[in-house]
Design a protein around this nucleic acid. Structure first.
Lengths: 222, 222
DNA sequence: CCCATGGTAATGGTTGAACCAATTTTGATT
DNA sequence: AATCAAAATTGGTTCAACCATTACCATGGG
């Protein structure tokens, strides 16, 4: 995947930040200056700035300049954390977040899930087992399982938040995961959840999800 | 707030979708065509497309075209819901989501909150009471209270998700809220939460938040 | 001395045209 | 019919100019 021009510029701007050359509240250099500095057209710089603005990391004021936002500094913290190498903290936070949300989703899904969705969940776990035996990569099956559950809750906001969360996970996944033990942990957890959902037992589903994520947490952070 | 050119174009493209002229998986008309059709420069069209791509609503392939994504169709669902006028459903979903997440946040915050943050919460509620008596608008105080709580949980992912959620809320707030009864509900709920946090009692905090959001739900959806 | 007022420069927003790069389509050749 | 090369289509990038808004500053009146 060749990155687009503006994406490399986004990275360069982030470097300026994590190298301390710029910090929260500061005004970015004018677009024309950045263009010369990075040896690209002003248009590409603008694309990068717009991408950052779309994520509320930066705010442009016509006639004034572009400022680094103080709110929503999570992604800045993230790039900082990446620089320091404290990626595990972020993983733990993501898991903590999931520990809060997903059991509740499972609870809702127990009442709302359709037979077709239940079948789809079973298919996913089947595929997981197959890939475990065939020593293939788990691909996105785990992610798909949890996303489908959010969908089964019947709440579009859940799905939306979850989609965003997946983006976060994709950012910082990669090295972790994909061991055989983790695959097994994932599968046994999913089976228990499906069992609870099939009985349409909300609190049992909630509990199954709770211990599932706890298992993941221990496997990943051991 | 005068909207930027590309924002109005994003809206126009969404209209094309919700009017059924385009649907999931379809290829968008070429940028040059859209530019003529909307009577804007191709560059502005490209800004709009990039904004949509940034949210994974659309995917561009050089030399081929721009396609509407099937995944992450939440925002499409949203614009559809808005078109039908089913805004209440969305509100209910957002509250259901908060009902899942926020009590857990309160639970975490009970252990992690700092005295300074606790003071800040008290100040917010004071301001709320003042504005209630002075018959002024609640502004963003309620939002600030809940955001600060997410911050007090000590988890940056929480804050991040919450910031995004606020964007959603801002989208669909406006007409609702702002009645005097709702202000009172908000304040009494917040006071109980602060009380529980001060005792550093996780399950009491969780419970206080649970009934607080339940109150909001009943007030807003009655 | 202060601070309004207006002009000027700096900065982001928008446009149009041209060209590059990747892909699809077309059509001629074998 | 299959294959390959040329052409057309489409998104990606650059450049140069201009518009709209804001900050800055010098000037002059209180």
């Amino acid at each position: 995947m060749k990155p687009y021009r503006y994406e490399t510029i986004v990275e360069q701007i982030r470097e300026l930040i994590s190298q301390g050359e710029l910090s929260i509240g500061d005004k970015l250099p004018p677009e024309r200056t950045l263009a010369k500095r990075f040896k690209v057209s002003r248009n590409s710089v603008r694309q990068a700035v717009q991408a950052l603005a779309e994520k509320n990391l930066v705010e442009s004021r016509q006639g004034d300049g572009t400022y680094i936002c103080d709110r929503n500094n999570a992604l800045l913290v993230d790039s900082l954390a990446r620089a320091i190498g404290a990626e595990k903290t972020r993983i733990r936070e993501i898991l903590e977040f999931r520990q809060c949300l997903e059991p509740q989703i499972a609870r809702l899904a127990a009442s709302a899930i359709s037979p077709a969705q239940l079948d789809r969940l079973k298919i996913i776990v089947c595929d997981q087992q197959r890939k475990l035996l065939a020593h293939e990569a788990d691909d996105l099956l785990d992610q798909e399982f949890h996303s489908l559950l959010a969908q089964a809750s019947g709440n579009t906001v859940m799905q939306e938040v979850f989609a965003n969360l997946n983006n976060l996970l994709n950012e910082s996944r990669s090295e972790f995961l994909q061991s055989n033990t983790r695959k097994r942990v994932s599968i046994t957890g999913h089976l228990k959840i499906i069992d609870a959902l099939e009985k349409r037992d909300p609190s049992m589903s909630q509990q199954a999800m709770e211990s599932h994520i706890l298992d993941i947490e221990q496997t990943v952070l051991n």
